[in-house]
Simulated assay, not measured.
Amino acid sequence: MIRKLYILTFLCLIFASYVAKGQGKLILEKETHDFGTIAEGTLASYVFRVKNVGKDPVVLTGVQASCGCTTPTWTKEPILPGKIGMIKAVYNSEGRPGPFYKSITVTSNNSEEPTHTLYIKGEVSTKDLKSGYTAEQKALSPRLAVGSTSHNFGKLEKGQKAVASFKVRNTGRQPLIIQGVQSACNCVTYRSSVAEIKAGQVATLELTYVPAVLKEQTEVVTVSSNDIVMPTLRLTLKADVQENKASKNMLREGVKPVPFR
């Protein structure tokens, strides 16, 4: 009996060692995001992307911000080899004028580097930021322009992830930075094809929408940027959200759900 117990303990240790030293490997798309200058009261958000270039799944076991002013959310399910995970950082600038530089510590079962550190930075100006600029400063400002301000997904299933792409152009004279997006449903994240959109450059702004409410939905998404003339721009997402078909099929099976056939 004692011998069996020793063997079982030995096997558990081997298994734990194997799990801890899995061959998953994360690489970061970028380590630091600069929001530039934002008006006080802005909820500035950015989504960091991490890719698993290893052979085994990687699990983000924890994400911790350096202060309570930054709220992180992240991919909870295992990131499979070749797939991308997300870490969203939201900085609350209310009552925090001046420059900021915050860190976000990411821990995982990454075989080579189990801990990564991400950074967000910028400067918080007063709430009446845009009214204090001179005509010359406004003339030199970056300017955000879009060809279309709405996108209709058509029919979507509840919980389905859908991406709307908007072409944005900087018609100003200084680099344009997308600083964050806000929506009442808190179900929209974003990604810009470039960190800084140079003067005259066109970039792609991707809005990822995950509907959580049934029937026809209209989500107004406020995009914040360092355009001092028009620091916020509203985009509209529409969808006819329907019940998830897989859930319905599982219910029809009876006692035990069978999602695949």
Rank of each mutant, 00 (worst) to 15 (best):
K245N: 05
K138Y: 13
A16N: 13
T236K: 04
P142M: 10
A199E: 04
S165L: 12
T149W: 11
K130H: 15
F166W: 08
K76C: 03
K245M: 07
K167Q: 12
V202E: 06
T9K: 14
V163D: 15
E219F: 01
I177E: 09
E31H: 03
V223M: 01
V124Q: 11
V58M: 06
T107E: 04
Q179T: 10
R169T: 14
A16W: 08
V255G: 13
V58Y: 02
I177D: 07
S150K: 07
E31T: 06
T105S: 04
R49F: 11
P259Q: 13
I120R: 05
M1S: 14
E206Q: 07
Y46K: 07
L233M: 06
V59L: 04
T218I: 05
V106Q: 00
L60Q: 03
P57I: 07
I87L: 09
C12A: 15
I27D: 00
K83I: 04
G159Q: 11
G154R: 08
L11T: 14
S45F: 04
P97E: 07
I178S: 10
V106S: 04
R173L: 14
K238V: 00
P99F: 06
I7W: 15
Y190D: 12
N52C: 08
L237Q: 02
L176Y: 09
I177Q: 13
P257Q: 13
T134H: 09
S45E: 03
G159M: 05
Q160M: 13
G122P: 11
E113C: 05
F153P: 05
A162G: 14
S111F: 03
V258D: 14
S17R: 14
K30G: 00
S111V: 00
T9G: 15
G132K: 15
F260V: 10
V213D: 07
P97Q: 06
P257C: 08
T218R: 09
L28N: 01
F166N: 06
H33T: 01
K102E: 12
D128P: 10
L233T: 04
Q201S: 06
P142I: 08
A203E: 05
G41W: 00
A162P: 08
N92K: 08
Q137N: 14
K130A: 14
E94D: 13
V47W: 00
M230D: 07
K25W: 01
H116G: 02
Y101K: 13
L13D: 12
V221R: 00
F166C: 15
T61D: 07
H33D: 00
